[in-house]
Amino acid sequence: MGRKIVAGVFHWLPKQLRGCSTTPLFMFCTSRDCNSSSEFSRWSNGGGYFHRSAVIDPSVKIDIGAVVHSNAKLDQDVHVGSGAVIGASVSIGKSTKIGYNAVLGNCSLGMSCTLHSGVCIGQDGFGFFVDGDRCVKKKPQTLQVKIGNDVEVGANTCIDRGRIGDYVTMGGRAAVRDHVSITSNVRLAANSGVTKDLPFPGDYAGFPAIPVREWRRQILSSRRLDDK
């Protein structure tokens, strides 16, 4: 009796789709299984998966292991790296590059942006309040992150819901709290923390982020105190 040979392929599952710890890192998918889903299909240019309600330009590349969810919109020449998750209704402008394992939700990105590996954008911020019964409640998070054109976001940066203008550069591990707006032509040093609006263009550093010249003066003053 001959053996039955089943054609198929292994697909890497990003962490967001694994569920419990017993879920395998890789999923074996036969051609019949891959085509039977009523919601997701495999993107021919790269091998990632997309929801059938998403609007995706034919020039877009979605690498294997990446997932694009419902009603997302990806413009021309967008590249989504392996393991990235593009959330529902996210909009990505022309020629924007999304790095490995980035997670985007509740946001829109302009043209020619670069998001490096591990970036997380559009999640709920750290917002709580005390109600009339003196109970701590989570503050509703309703804003969207709006990122302009030609913005570069460093690896592992986290941006909660707010607004970012055009030509903004953020160093690695920079953080932006919720309900914050950053004007155009701002550069944030690595490990900066933005806790309030930045209405003026320029270079910022520190936690909380302040103009870089002021931050350098603070560092110099602290060193002088240490030397005494």
Rank of each mutant, 00 (worst) to 15 (best):
M1Y: 11
M1I: 04
K4T: 14
H11S: 08
H11I: 08
W12S: 14
L13K: 14
K15Y: 03
L17Y: 15
R18K: 14
P24H: 04
T30C: 01
R32I: 00
C34R: 15
E39P: 02
F40S: 00
R42K: 07
W43F: 04
N45K: 14
G46R: 14
G48T: 10
F50M: 06
R52G: 11
I56E: 11
S59D: 06
S59R: 12
D63L: 05
G65R: 08
A66M: 06
A66I: 05
S70H: 14
N71E: 14
D77M: 00
G81E: 11
A88L: 05
A88I: 07
S89E: 15
I92S: 08
K97Q: 12
I98V: 15
A102D: 08
L104P: 01
L104I: 03
G105V: 01
L109H: 06
T114Y: 10
L115F: 14
G118F: 02
G118S: 10
V119P: 02
G122I: 00
R134N: 13
C135H: 11
V136L: 14
K139Q: 11
Q141W: 02
L143Y: 08
Q144V: 03
V145A: 06
K146G: 02
G148L: 05
D150N: 15
E152L: 02
V153H: 05
V153R: 05
G154N: 07
A155D: 04
C158L: 02
I164M: 13
I164E: 05
Y167M: 06
Y167T: 03
T169P: 00
M170S: 12
D178M: 05
D178V: 04
D178W: 08
I182S: 11
A189M: 11
A189V: 05
N191Q: 12
G193I: 09
T195F: 12
K196T: 06
D197G: 01
D197I: 03
L198K: 12
D203Y: 12
A205P: 09
G206Q: 10
F207H: 10
I210C: 08
I210Q: 14
P211Q: 06
V212G: 01
V212D: 10
R213D: 07
E214A: 09
W215Y: 13
R216D: 10
S221M: 08
S221E: 13
S222N: 13
R223V: 04
D226I: 02
D226A: 08
